[in-house]
Write a protein that binds this DNA or RNA. Structure first.
Length: 198
DNA sequence: TGCACGATTCTCT
DNA sequence: GAGAATCGTGCAA
């Protein structure tokens, strides 16, 4: 069953942890690809210096974070990669989101290999990073603002990962965020081979 | 209108 | 472990 709106209308950190183990699915023209979410980071709105919405900044790019929860926030980074976020939060209109950092590929691995290029045929490296999983799943700015509670692009429910199997650590790639850099808002499934970094 | 830089990844040393 | 690739975005001017 597809996760419904209420799932995302909760505290963004709770939503981030609960999204671990869930299945991201994209039914594209090339075929269906899916993967289990194994790594995620929470970005906590205006007070979080690492978030695009820090200070309440509202622009054309991050506009979707101010809208309904459970939508896709996809942005272009470093001139060549996309990052995929899910909007979430227990306060309507507050710009918060969770960054999906890694998947464990399930369906459509051949399609993922094609999208990632011939030099990346090993299953694990297809989706063990935010830019990589977007490439493998066929996510681009086309999916920006997409509603994730209905096909063709959605997240399926799956058994919740137990707290003892969730590792909490500091986020990656946000050295500029000063004191917020060390917040333990990155979560991943303990022992999973598909996470992006230790 | 211009310009510095990023929630990354890959290659080469 | 360092450096390149590569461009939309945000903010200063």
């Amino acid at each position: 069953m597809i996760l419904q709106r209420a799932f995302y209308e909760r505290d963004v950190i709770t939503v981030s942890k609960d999204l671990l183990g869930k299945l991201l699915v994209n039914e594209s023209l090339e075929g269906k690809t899916s993967g289990k979410i194994v790594e995620i980071e929470a970005y906590c709105g205006p007070e979080d210096r690492a978030a695009h919405s820090f200070g309440g900044r509202r622009t054309a790019r991050n506009e979707v974070m101010f809208g309904p929860k459970g939508h896709a926030y996809v942005y272009f980074i470093y001139g060549m990669y996309y990052c995929f976020n899910v909007t979430a939060g227990n306060v309507a209109g507050k710009p918060e989101a969770a960054l999906i950092r890694a998947l464990e590929s399930l369906e459509g691995k051949d399609i993922m290999s094609n999208r990632r290029g011939a030099t990346h045929e090993k299953a694990v490296t297809l989706t063990n990073g935010p830019g990589k999983l977007c490439m493998a799943m066929g996510i681009s700015k086309v999916q920006n603002c997409a509603d994730l509670i209905m096909p063709p692009f959605y997240i399926m429910d799956a058994p919740t990962v137990l707290p003892e199997n969730i590792v909490e650590t500091e986020r990656i790639g946000i050295d500029y965020a000063r004191e917020w850099r060390n917040k333990p808002w990155r979560f991943y499934i303990k022992g999973n081979a598909s996470i992006s970094a230790k």
